[in-house]
């Protein structure tokens, strides 16, 4: 190399080498500093999240490990009897009922839309796709306002479980639709072509071949939408009425949900209710973890089987 650069003065060459060395050293230094910062970022990101999990378990465990937590109705503490609590049976059933009603509406409609979107590349489908994407990004409190104006006021139903379920269904619909669309699109089109080639009608092909093939993804999407809805506070807080003193499944009754109970508990002045809020939060987080993990593991296994 050096021979080819013969006219270059050796001093200059030394200088250049020196400069290059210095640059490399600086670059290496910068690189190691930034690498260290990346590691630091992981640490900074992990600390609060670990703190939350530790708080959840340390404060919440004693609640979720007692049966009265699930079976008793709540008892509000009073100024001079601050430690009485009762359980959260009404919110537990309330959340379950809210989700079930929301699913009754959101699952079939959401899947329908998703399949439609996957099978159509038309203009209306494109518009609908944009609408879906926009709805996914809409703040959830707006679903609460929507449920209030439609169910509570316009239809005159009043504060009710129905209104809460309606809001949750509107929240879940675009989520289910978009996961369904993706799963159906991911089905190899050779499958569809095979069906059509065998003389099956397009609808039969869809119903018998494509949708079953996409079922794993669709179900996973539904589970994830449920796990999102189950922790949703703003929607139900505005419209379900709260303070249901009894356990009820009737859609027109006032209801209570786990997240909204956390929200009101935490605004109480009694530390016993704060602790109970940790308990409910831990329960909720565990439910969501189990749902997400189940969806994940199940879909991973199904995929393996197919291969």
């Amino acid at each position: 190399m050096t021979d080819l650069l013969s006219p270059v003065d050796s001093e200059v060459r030394a200088h250049v080498r020196e400069r290059a060395e210095a640059t490399r050293a600086r670059r290496q230094a910068v690189s190691s500093i930034m690498t260290a910062l990346c590691w630091a970022a992981i640490a900074v990101a992990a600390v609060p999240l670990v703190m939350i999990l530790v708080e959840l378990f340390s404060k919440g465990w004693s609640y979720i490990s007692t049966s009265s937590f699930y079976t008793q109705l709540p008892q509000a503490p009073t100024l001079f009897s601050q430690n009485q609590l009762g359980g959260i049976s009404n919110s537990l059933i309330g959340s379950l009922v809210l989700i079930v009603y929301a699913c009754l509406a959101a699952v079939p409609i959401g899947i329908g839309i998703g399949v439609y979107l996957a099978e159509h590349d038309t203009k209306p489908a494109a518009v609908l796709r944009t609408v879906t994407a926009t709805m996914i990004g809409a703040p959830s409190i707006l679903m609460g306002l929507f449920a209030y104006s439609v169910i509570v006021i316009q239809f005159g139903v009043g504060f009710s479980i129905l209104a809460g379920s309606f809001g949750l269904a509107v929240l879940m619909l675009p989520l289910i639709a978009s996961t369904t669309e993706l799963s159906v699109r991911n089905v190899p089109h050779t499958l569809r072509e095979a069906g059509l080639a065998l003389g099956a009608r397009p609808s039969t092909t869809s119903l018998r071949i494509v949708i079953p093939a996409a079922l794993t993804g669709i179900v996973t999407g539904c589970i994830l939408a449920i796990s999102r809805a189950v922790g949703e506070t703003a929607v139900i807080y505005l419209v379900i009425g709260g303070t249901a003193s009894a356990i009820t499944w009737k859609p027109l009754d006032f209801g209570n949900g786990l997240p909204s109970t956390i929200y009101t508990d935490v605004q109480s002045s009694y530390s016993s209710q704060h602790d109970q809020a940790w308990g409910i939060a831990l329960f909720l987080v565990l439910v969501i973890f189990v749902l997400s993990l189940a969806a994940r593991i199940w879909s991973a296994r199904k995929q393996k089987v197919r291969r």
């Binding site: 929200y263 940790w278 987080v285």
Partner: peptide, 19 residues
């Protein structure tokens, strides 16, 4: 990380207000 993304916001809220 994906599990943490699924934690409802009210849980972050109580951590903020109580801790």
């Amino acid at each position: 990380v994906e599990l943490l993304a699924a934690i409802p916001s009210v849980v972050y809220g109580i951590w903020g207000i109580l801790v």
